[in-house]
């Protein structure tokens, strides 16, 4: 299976962290704040759609609110497979970090 891309991984973590507040604008603000970069709406939704197709997140509609001009929110929720995938990704990182940590500390 293919590896998660960096944006996919970050967004997956964001969805996981935000719990039941994980919808477009919140995710956007969270990743923008953490990475210090301006993410566009498209750059949030496109990888999330990809993750949804792969089955790592699922989405459901919220209640329409006045603030959003009567539009519904689209909440994202991480699935079991998604959590599994994140852990695998972390293990992979850790394994590779331990391999190079000695070189990095030396310099």
């Amino acid at each position: 299976m293919t590896l998660l891309s960096k944006p996919e991984e970050l967004l997956l973590m964001a969805v996981c962290h935000l719990q039941d507040q994980a919808y477009g604008v919140e995710i956007l603000r969270y990743v923008s704040e953490k990475t210090g970069k301006k993410w566009s709406i498209g750059s949030v939704y496109v990888p999330l759609d990809r993750l949804a197709r792969a089955g790592y997140v699922e989405s459901y509609q919220g209640e329409p609110t006045q603030k959003r001009g009567g539009k519904r929110k689209r909440y994202f929720k991480i699935t079991k497979a998604g959590e599994q995938r994140l852990l695998e990704s972390k293990q992979l990182h850790d394994a590779m970090w331990s391999d190079i940590s000695t070189y990095l500390e030396r310099s």
Partner: peptide
């Protein structure tokens, strides 16, 4: 995902007002 999808429209509107 398009510009016409409700959640996207809603997000755009919400963030617009916030900004």
């Amino acid at each position: 995902m398009t510009l016409w999808d409700d959640p996207v429209k809603g997000d755009l509107q919400e963030e617009y007002h916030y900004l």
